[in-house]
Simulated scan of single mutants.
Amino acid sequence: MDTKKIGILGGTFDPPHIGHLIMATEAKFQCNLDEIWFMPSATPPHKNREVTHGEHRIAMVREMIARCEGFEVTEIEFERKGPSYTVDTIQQLKEDHADARFYFIIGGDMVDSLHTWDRIEQLMEMVTFIGVKRPGYEFESPYMDRILTIETPLIGISSTMLRNRFAGGENTKYYVSEEVRKYIEVNGLYEAGRSTENR
């Protein structure tokens, strides 16, 4: 049996947006991956704010990738209690999927902070990192010789910006998929307001 090459894109996805899709798609094609698994974080150890309930974040990712071939959602981080450390998650994935080779997709800011990750040396032995570089940006990491680097167009979208836009009733068209936008509005996520109808 051939070894399946699976890319993991982790995050809070609060909400998931077009930037996540572009990053995943570029990694899939540039690194010749068979599948991309979106992995919403259950209890991100680095977040100091409350995140939207995991049920909603998982549902939004499912809505976003429903028509994307080779894209899936894994709920593995919700199967354990406590903070979600990548090294523990990858260890579990490798045990559950012995026939797969895993690649972990991260943005430039995460590449620069890899040295601060929990048990990073152990993690480096278990997974291949794919660093997504925006044009004109250079990584700074002691692990560069062990990271695959790809370049994507600069997409200046953040989930924080989108939460603020939804709360303020501002335009969100094309920043998130129409399915995700409707899910957010139907479920009243991001409190203070609803986005415009984007007509």
Rank of each mutant, 00 (worst) to 15 (best):
I120P: 07
E121F: 06
E121N: 15
Q122V: 07
L123S: 14
L123F: 10
L123Y: 12
L123M: 12
M126L: 15
M126D: 15
I130N: 02
I130Y: 00
G131T: 03
G131Q: 12
V132R: 01
K133Q: 14
K133G: 04
K133I: 01
K133R: 14
K133F: 01
R134N: 12
R134V: 13
G136A: 04
Y137M: 12
E138Q: 11
E138W: 03
F139W: 05
E140F: 12
P142L: 13
R146D: 14
R146W: 01
R146G: 05
R146Y: 11
I147Y: 13
E151H: 00
E151V: 02
T152Q: 02
P153Q: 11
I155E: 07
G156L: 10
G156C: 01
I157Q: 03
S158C: 01
S159H: 08
T160I: 02
M161P: 04
L162Y: 00
L162H: 03
R163H: 09
R165M: 06
G168S: 06
G169R: 02
E170H: 11
N171S: 14
T172W: 06
Y174R: 06
Y175K: 06
V176R: 08
S177C: 07
S177L: 01
E179N: 14
V180F: 07
V180S: 14
K182I: 01
Y183C: 07
E185Q: 13
V186C: 03
